[in-house]
């Protein structure tokens, strides 16, 4: 670790405790699917996220929690290079997916996004039929040759997303006729239709009512057998309920520029983060004293 300034020194200390945490309380045999070292994100001049070191493990749910502006969504959007869509965004550092540098010059972001799917904060179905929404990904990825194959994919994906029984009679009607919770499950079905490896979820329940939220949480619990899931959430109870591991982010103000920079404070198994965290800031946040 080569800390050049004070801020990264502070952060590097947290890193060490992180890595220790990994050795102590995490299962050492698990394989990680994402490997991030010194990940920095900038929006123009704004240093949005500083020096994130984080391993994401396969076939489990990792939750990112923290106050607004702490950079959890920014970090999430690095994993499928969604930040590329923002012209002023710049990502530095190492981010590997199964040993491949995601930001290497040979990497095609489109290929990345086929394997690493995303579900957004607000349900954003296409203005098309329910069927066409789910079939869109397989179609543009050239996955299916014929209609019956596509029908199978659509049915399987909708079943996976626990939506099939509610919509099987009206696959041809507009996706906008669905309720918010159904739309979000449709977006999940759409994401898993291309058979990704990882699902990134950016506060997928923040615009849903408690019943719809519960359904999505149950769904995620079933999905983690097949997919690696990373979820950003503002809801700490949700993170505690569903996540296997939890990463806590927060922001600190730069004394010189006055701009806020997000950083990873602590990453550990969820139980430990919510019952006995190492860092005082994490404890303050999860017990509701801050943020």
């Amino acid at each position: 670790m080569n800390g050049a300034n004070n801020m990264s020194d502070v952060n590097n200390m947290t890193d060490v405790s992180d890595l220790n945490g990994t050795a102590n309380s995490m299962n050492g045999e698990q394989e990680h699917i994402f490997y991030a070292r010194d990940l920095n994100i900038y929006y123009g001049d704004h240093h949005a996220v500083a020096d994130v070191n984080l391993d994401i493990y396969s076939k489990e749910i990792t939750a990112f929690i923290g106050p607004s502006g702490c950079g959890k969504t920014s970090v999430l959007r690095c994993y499928n290079r969604m930040n590329d869509l923002i012209p002023i965004a710049k990502v530095e550092g190492t981010l590997e997916y199964k040993g491949l540098n995601l930001y290497g010059s040979q990497i095609d972001p489109v290929e990345v996004r086929r394997r690493i799917g995303m579900v957004f904060q607000k349900p954003n179905p296409f203005p098309k039929s329910i069927y066409e929404n789910v079939a869109y990904g397989p179609k543009v990825c050239g996955m299916s040759r014929n209609r019956s194959e596509l029908d199978d994919i659509v049915e399987r994906s909708l079943k996976r997303a626990a939506l099939w029984d509610e919509v099987k009679g009206r696959l041809k009607s507009s996706a906008f006729g669905l309720s918010g919770g159904q739309q979000q499950r449709l977006c999940i079905a759409r994401a898993i239709a291309v058979d990704p490896d990882v699902l990134l979820m950016d506060e997928p329940c923040s615009s849903l009512d408690p019943i719809a939220t519960t359904r999505i949480e149950e769904l995620m619990d079933g999905l983690k057998n097949d997919y690696t899931i990373i979820i950003v959430t503002h809801n700490m109870q949700q993170a505690a309920r569903i996540s296997d591991k939890t990463a806590f982010f927060t922001t600190e103000e730069n004394a010189e520029t006055g701009m806020r920079t997000g950083m990873l404070i602590e990453f550990d198994i969820a139980e430990k983060i919510f019952s006995n965290p190492n860092d005082e800031r994490t404890e303050n946040y999860v017990t509701g004293r801050f943020g």
Binding site: M82, F126, G137, C141
Partner: peptide
């Protein structure tokens, strides 16, 4: 057309031309 449509399409691994011809233009 809202950017959320473009993001949804890109997030599924669609190339820009797919997003334009299959999502943006129909919408």
């Amino acid at each position: 057309d809202p950017d959320s449509l473009r993001e949804a399409s890109s997030g599924l691994g669609a190339r820009k031309r797919h997003t334009i011809f299959s999502v943006i233009i129909p919408a």
